[in-house]
Computed example of a mutant assay.
Amino acid sequence: MLHLRYFVAVAEELNFSAAARRLHMATSPLSQRIRDLERELGQQLFDRDTRSVTLTPVGSALLPIARDVLDEFSSIPWRLREATREQRDTVLIGIPPGLHPELRSRVGTLTERVQEQFELQRWPGSTQALVAGVREGRIGLALARLPFSDPALEQASVMSERMGAAVPADMFAGRDSVALADLADLPYVAPPKEVRVAYFDVLERALAEGGVRHRLCLTDTGYNGVSEVISSGLAFCISILAPENPIHGYQLENVTVLPFTDFHPRLETALVWRRDRADSDLKDLVAAAREIFDGPMIID
């Protein structure tokens, strides 16, 4: 199983270093495990040179098989629970940071709707952790920030929130909007990696193309640290515009969020569940969730 996990990681990343980071291991032992697997199968799975890694035809054929095997293996815990379950199941629903109050309200509606069949409990986490939990069967459903992709999972968009520039209020006093050119000399600070969603990588590229190239990197902090440097006049960031979003609770006194005039970032949230569970033990829960979270809601 471990060798198959290693193979899938390399096949999806097509880069041994990136796959090693994803697996939290060093590159050298990962390369050795792949060679071990190739030796055991008697087939070459990757073509490697100094510049690229590509799947061989055998590797391409193995990839869907390996994913299926790993999915079946990951499903063992919840299949055992299904085989021995009591009448009312406890199911976790993943909740990301800064969830809009309307989505939180709909989680409450779902909890009430399915209470005779399921005990729905909220589980906090980053999008990466929540998606992994759904894939592995520990979490039944999750609300997660797009983009993410996993062939074992299904998703339905439930909310799109307009984003603006969180800037030092004193530097933009009297302004009700901002253009990218106004921010060219102010460093951009992204949320630290521990709490950052994949969409911020897309934003960074778009900002660079728009002329915002200065960066300020923070580590060992969270949204509070980002707000601190903005309040001090050292940087700006991209944040959700709607004031009712709880992310605004992290803002300090000298921070304001202004809409863009020439840039249109939006944070997308999706409901995600495991494809095979929607046809088995979570069929009724997923059906109820899709009805309650029918969307997407557009928040401007």
Score class of each variant (00 low, 15 high):
Asp300Trp: 00
Phe263Leu: 04
Ile299Tyr: 14
Ser17Leu: 00
Glu161Phe: 15
Ala129Ile: 04
Leu258Cys: 09
Arg138Thr: 11
Gly125Ser: 05
Pro246Lys: 10
Asp49Gly: 08
Val53Gly: 09
Thr84Asn: 10
Ala9Asn: 00
Pro29Asn: 05
Pro168Ala: 11
Arg138Leu: 07
Arg5Pro: 02
Asp201Ser: 09
Ser75Phe: 06
Arg22Glu: 02
Asp294Ser: 14
Val195Arg: 04
Thr127Gly: 07
Arg51Gln: 11
Leu183His: 12
Met25Asn: 06
Glu228His: 08
Ala270Val: 06
Ala166Arg: 07
Asp300Lys: 01
Leu120Lys: 03
Thr111Cys: 03
Ile292Ala: 08
Arg277Leu: 05
Tyr199His: 15
Trp123Ala: 13
Leu23Met: 08
Ala206Thr: 11
Val158Lys: 14
Tyr6His: 11
Asp294Asn: 13
Leu130Cys: 07
Glu72Gln: 15
Asp220Val: 01
Leu55Asp: 10
Leu92Ile: 03
Asp176Lys: 12
Ser105Glu: 09
Phe73Val: 11
Glu38Asn: 05
Arg85His: 12
Asp68Glu: 08
Phe148Ser: 09
Glu204Leu: 14
Arg48Trp: 00
Val195Met: 04
Val58Cys: 06
Asp89Lys: 14
Gly94Pro: 05
Arg88Thr: 10
Arg79Asn: 12
Arg67Ile: 10
Met163Cys: 15
Ser231Asp: 12
Arg135Cys: 03
Gln121His: 03
Gln87Phe: 06
Glu161Gly: 15
Leu207Pro: 15
Pro296Leu: 10
Gln251Tyr: 14
Leu153Gly: 11
Phe148Ile: 03
